[in-house]
């Protein structure tokens, strides 16, 4: 099974944003929204005074968006991509809130979550638009487990750097080559209202289980010794006792 990754040499990015436009065009992303971005950071060491860091969905391992989705509409594919099944997505936005990279948005036409899918939805099997269009070839996409691929060669010869929002615990698969600025992202809110459903689901599971066990126990108890028969025995005893008292009174 392939393990697809996106690698970015942000040192050669010149912030032309061709990747952003190409992605919008190929994936019909509505105006004003984008599946990818180029982050600008002031940098004295850069000739133009700014460092550029292209980014998109990080296709994380153990992704927080997948954990946040209540309907299983988003999942981590075995080939490394984080996918969305739009037919199961009701657009609750829980995954959008949960992504520490803010890589997701709600598509205004479909009403479902949207993000980078390596252009699989629009042009399956083809090189992603952002990779194909980059004039400085700063992006490399491929199977990290295929030694012949450019991605595997880049990973073997250069250092892979992951940019992680502080405190998020994210495990991105998108890597920057050698170095990138910023090296870390600030912490942001990644919670959703549905976080409370996890302990609630455990509560339902345990309480429901205990109730079923108690009912099963009561069912067996009633099979062995019926409370109704005990009632009848008590009633007979009461009548006998009353009968005995009557006889004593008469005597």
């Amino acid at each position: 099974m392939a393990r697809y990754v996106m690698l970015i040499d942000s040192g050669v990015c010149m912030n032309c944003k061709a990747c952003v436009v190409a992605c919008q065009q190929r994936n019909h992303v509505p105006y004003g929204l984008s599946r990818n971005w180029v982050r600008e950071t002031d940098s004295a060491s850069s000739p133009c005074g700014a460092a550029f860091q292209p980014g998109a969905c990080m296709h994380c391992d153990d992704p927080s968006c997948v954990r946040a989705c209540p309907t299983g509409a988003t999942w981590k594919n075995r080939d490394g991509a984080v996918e969305i099944d739009r037919s199961r997505c009701i657009g609750c936005g829980s995954c959008i809130d949960a992504c520490p990279y803010h890589a997701r948005f709600r598509h205004p036409l479909t009403g479902t979550a949207d993000k980078c899918d390596y252009c699989r939805g629009s042009t399956p099997g083809q090189t992603p638009a952002c990779v194909a269009v980059c004039p400085t070839h700063c992006r490399i996409f491929g199977d990290a487990d295929d030694p012949a691929s450019d991605a595997a060669k880049a990973l073997a010869s250069r250092k892979a750097v992951h940019v992680i929002p502080a405190g998020s615990g994210a495990r991105p698969t998108l890597a920057y080559l050698d170095a990138t600025t910023p090296a870390e992202l600030p912490a942001g809110s990644t919670g959703s209202r549905l976080d409370a459903m996890r302990p609630l689901a455990r509560g339902v599971k345990w309480t429901g289980g205990l109730v079923l066990a108690a009912l099963a126990g009561t069912f067996v108890r009633q099979l062995v010794k019926s409370s109704e028969k005990e009632d009848e025995e008590l009633e007979r005893e009461r009548r006998n006792a009353e009968g005995g008292r009557d006889k004593e009174d008469k005597a």
């Binding site: 997505c89 609750c92 829980s94 479909t110 009403g111």
Partner: peptide
Amino acid sequence: SGASEWAVSESVLQ
């Protein structure tokens, strides 16, 4: 929800 013309906000859906 989704593409419905009466789609409510994400917060309401959650």
